[in-house]
């Protein structure tokens, strides 16, 4: 049995002379959250729109649950839920009507529990044109998952959402994943990708430049771990002591930041030194390079 929910092999799509997506290949195992990251114009939305059957690729192979979305779109409609980056509903359609309208076409009962959860039940009678941007985004998300699809494709789902809605969306995504739903997430938000995804692909100028788990991708970078230390007597500020494996020392506010390739060795040396000097640790943080830092590193290298 095929364990892959989504497969893409050498996908290519151009608009006239402009190649939007070139030789893009990735696969998403069932039940995983896969992140598609990249700056504006990288080809994320075009890739998703090809998978959604909204655009026809020039070449390449696409499969969702073993079906070709370009040819078997109808069979996939009830298996896939999509939140588009740009879409809309009729201006005068109420929230309640939109729920009944779309769930009826999917042959399921309206999901008012989702409206309640995303704080839209009280807006049930409001027309689409009366909703705020955040409310429209939340409604689009609810409509994407109301028919319990096996695969959910989300294009910038948190754009325009406030902190509470964003947290609720993340909780909902986690719940979907726990229930076995596969999620393909296109986002600009590196913190979101780092928190939510099992693996990611970074797209730049239509091509995938790196792919893997967040840990794998961040490990591909310069490899430095940042150790930030703050002590009572600020002895580390005064002394230009050299610790093992440290390549750079930066003082910022009350903290001394060390960039090291061997964090374990460096941390124990710092603690020994502070104790010997009769100083006392107030704070010590060890930070891996974030996905955002690695993303910026990769994109600036390629640009």
């Amino acid at each position: 049995m095929n364990q892959l929910a989504i497969e893409l092999n050498n996908l290519r799509k151009s608009y006239g002379e402009v190649i939007a997506v070139d030789q893009v290949s990735f696969s998403v195992p069932k039940g995983e959250i896969f992140g598609l990251l990249g700056p504006n114009g990288a080809g994320k939305t075009t890739t998703l729109e090809c998978l959604e059957g909204l655009r026809k690729p020039d070449s390449g192979m696409m499969r969702i649950m073993g079906e070709d979305p370009a040819r078997d779109g109808r069979r996939l409609r009830n298996l896939v839920g999509v939140q588009l980056q740009t879409s809309g509903l009729p201006a005068t359609m109420t929230v309640d009507e939109s729920m009944r309208f779309f769930t009826a076409y999917h042959g399921v009962q309206p999901r008012y529990d989702l409206l309640e959860r995303m704080d839209l039940l009280k807006k049930k009678g409001s027309q689409y044109q009366e909703l705020s941007t955040g409310q429209k985004r939340r409604l689009a998300l609810i409509l994407a998952i109301a028919h319990d699809p096996l695969i959910v494709i989300l294009d910038e789902p948190t754009a325009g959402l406030d902190v509470a809605s964003r947290a609720e969306l993340h909780a909902m995504m986690q719940e979907l994943k726990n229930n076995g739903t596969t999620i393909l997430l296109a986002t600009h938000d590196m913190a979101e990708a780092e928190k939510m995804t099992d693996s990611v692909a970074i797209l730049l100028k239509g091509s995938i430049i790196t792919m893997g788990t967040v840990r794998e991708i961040t490990a591909q970078g310069s490899g430095f771990t940042k150790i930030s230390v703050r002590t009572e007597e600020s002895r580390l500020h005064e002394d230009e002591i050299e610790f093992p494996a440290v390549s750079q020392r930066v003082i910022k506010n009350e903290y001394v930041n060390y960039f090291t390739t061997e964090p374990g060795v460096t941390v124990s040396s710092i603690i020994n030194y502070v104790e010997k000097q009769g100083d006392r640790l107030i704070d010590l943080r060890v930070e891996r390079p974030s996905l955002e830092e690695r993303f910026l590193e990769i994109t600036s290298e390629r640009n």
Binding site: L54, R77, V80, L84, S87, G88, L89, P90, Y105
Partner: peptide, 16 residues
């Protein structure tokens, strides 16, 4: 207008 506002895109992905 519905076409230019992306309403039919929403309809298509929901199988209408």
């Amino acid at each position: 207008e519905a076409r230019s506002q992306g309403i039919y895109r929403s309809y298509k992905i929901n199988g209408i």
